[in-house]
Each structure stands twice: as structure tokens, then as C-alpha cells.
């Protein structure tokens, strides 16, 4: 107990850079600057309920949801393959899988830009076969592609880590009791991997719903997701109050989804943050 003072720098850090900014954001979200000074209001939140903003909010959630589903569908088999291979090959596979993550996020997304653009690599190759250039950029698909590409490892790794810890004798026990491979998967392997699936979903959905780099680069200037909306309030419009209000709403949405997911994550262990 006596060495608790060691944590003091961290506590100071947390207060300065987490607690105070949060309070500030909250303060901004419930105030407006008028000529007479600062007044408290819920006007900022009301503004967010205008159809044009709701549409942006909806599109963000929708795209994040779809990319999460795609990541899950692609990532689960990948995680199973990783967990199933022997150690030597496994290390190579994991390396290949993780290596792109060591590169800068922006750079990776720019790379897609050069691949997909009108005179990009894909269209150049296609034109060799006499196919007219396709509009690959600046639409939902391009944004989804960017999200899936960037966030897939966050789905695979937690599922892989849970799957690789599943006791092999449990699988054998299920076979022993009459379950064929399909039944073993649906009744034992998949349910046991749910905590990994839940953290995978959280780890993909959260950055996907708030990303502003991917839609900015691959979605084009007019393509607005909630992340871009917030960015624009602070950088271009200068309406910090509205920007803060959107941020607060996003935080609440994320907290809710985390709460739902952590139920699955901790279901069999008990306890946990939202347990």
C-alpha cells in the first residue's frame, strides 16, 4: 500500500488529459456562445436530430456494421486456420498477417487510393483486356473495402487467441459423444469462441464507426461519416459546441455497444466491467 505514490504521475496524467478534456467536451456540448456570453442549452443535441445529420449517423453505423460482419465472415475461418496449424507454419502466417499493421495507417489507405483510382493499377490492368475504366473509388464499396482491410486483424487476433486456448480434449469429448465435425463446431467450438468474437466485434466496430481517414480518402470530399462530421465542426466550421455534442452521442453509442459485447465476453468467466 505504501508504494501507491508511484501511480501519482499516472493519475496526474489521467486528470490532465482524460478527465479534464472529457469535462470540457461535455461542457461545450451543453453550451452555446452568444453575445451575452455562455448559456446552457440542449440546442446542439437537437441539431443532431435534423434529418441530414441523422442520415450521416445512420450511414456511419450501417457501414461500420456491414464491415464488422464482413470482417467476422472473413476473419473467423482465418482464425480457425491459424489456430489449427502447427507452430512453425503458424508463426509465418501470423507474421504475414500482422506485418501490414506495422505500416502507417494513412499510408496503407493511400495505397488503396492508387490501386482503385481511375488511372490506377486495377483499371490499367483491366484496360489491357479492353475493359472500360470502372468507378472503383468514392462510393460505399471503396469505404467498406478500406475499413475491412484496415480492421480485419482486430477481428482475427482475438478470435484466434480464444480458439487456440480451447482444450483439444473438449473437442474429442464432443466427438466421443456422437457429434460429427459440423455439430462439434456449432455446439462446442463456436460457443466456446464467443468471447473472442465479442471482442473482435467491439474492436472492429468501434474504430469503424468513428473513422474519418478512410471515408475522407476513399469516399471522397462529399462522402461524410460521423467522424468527418465531427472533424469538420472543429476544423472547418469552428462550431466546437456542435462537434462536442456529436462526440458525446458517439461516446454514448460506443459505451452501449461495449456494454452489450462485454456481456458475451465475460459470460462464462463472471465479473468484468459490465458483468
Amino acid at each position: 500500500m505504501k508504494i501507491r505514490w508511484i501511480s501519482t504521475p499516472y493519475i496526474v496524467w489521467m486528470i490532465m488529459f482524460t478527465v479534464v478534456p472529457l469535462l470540457l467536451v461535455f461542457f461545450f456540448s451543453i453550451t452555446v456562445q452568444t453575445d451575452e456570453g455562455i448559456t446552457f442549452t440542449l440546442e446542439n443535441f437537437k441539431k443532431l436530430s435534423e434529418p441530414i445529420y441523422l442520415k450521416v449517423l445512420w450511414r456511419s453505423i450501417y457501414l461500420a456494421f456491414v464491415s464488422t460482419v464482413i470482417c467476422l465472415l472473413l476473419g473467423y475461418p482465418m482464425a480457425m486456420i491459424l489456430a489449427g496449424t502447427d507452430v512453425k507454419r503458424k508463426n509465418v502466417l501470423i507474421f504475414l498477417f500482422v506485418a501490414p499493421m506495422w505500416m502507417n495507417f494513412l499510408l496503407r489507405t493511400y495505397a488503396w487510393l492508387t490501386l482503385l483510382e481511375k488511372n490506377g493499377l486495377i483499371n490499367t490492368v483491366l484496360s489491357l483486356f479492353g475493359i472500360k475504366p470502372l468507378n472503383l473509388l468514392y462510393n460505399n464499396l471503396a469505404v467498406l473495402l478500406g475499413m475491412v482491410y484496415n480492421f480485419l486483424p482486430f477481428m482475427v487476433l482475438p478470435i484466434y487467441s480464444v480458439l487456440s486456448k480451447v482444450d483439444k480434449s473438449v473437442i474429442e469429448a464432443a466427438q466421443d459423444l456422437g457429434a460429427n465435425n459440423f455439430k462439434v463446431f456449432t455446439k462446442v467450438t463456436f460457443p466456446l469462441s464467443l468471447p473472442g468474437v465479442a471482442s473482435g466485434i467491439t474492436m472492429v466496430f468501434m474504430p469503424a464507426v468513428t473513422t474519418f481517414v478512410v471515408p475522407r480518402l476513399l469516399g471522397g470530399a462529399q462522402f461524410t461519416l460521423i467522424g468527418n462530421l465531427i472533424e469538420r465542426q472543429f476544423v472547418l466550421v469552428g462550431d466546437w459546441n456542435f462537434g462536442s455534442a456529436i462526440s458525446i452521442v458517439m461516446m454514448i453509442l460506443i459505451l452501449i455497444s461495449m456494454g452489450i459485447m462485454s456481456r458475451y465476453e465475460t459470460e462464462h468467466v463472471g465479473g468484468g466491467f459490465f458483468g
Partner: peptide, 28 residues
């Protein structure tokens, strides 16, 4: 294959299904 054999096994470290309660384990 094991799932077609008329034998059942009690494993060394039990290998119970931790995502199921006692009833569901036995009913598997």
C-alpha cells in the same frame, strides 16, 4: 470415426463443456 463408435470416454481432465451447465453437459 469416434462419433460412430459405441464407446464413451471419461477424460483425464474431465473435458467438460464450460459453456453449458451440468444438465446440458450430461444431455449433450
Amino acid at each position: 470415426p469416434p462419433y460412430k463408435r459405441k464407446v464413451n470416454t471419461v477424460f483425464q481432465r474431465y473435458a467438460l463443456f464450460t459453456h453449458m451447465n451440468v444438465f446440458e453437459n450430461v444431455a449433450f
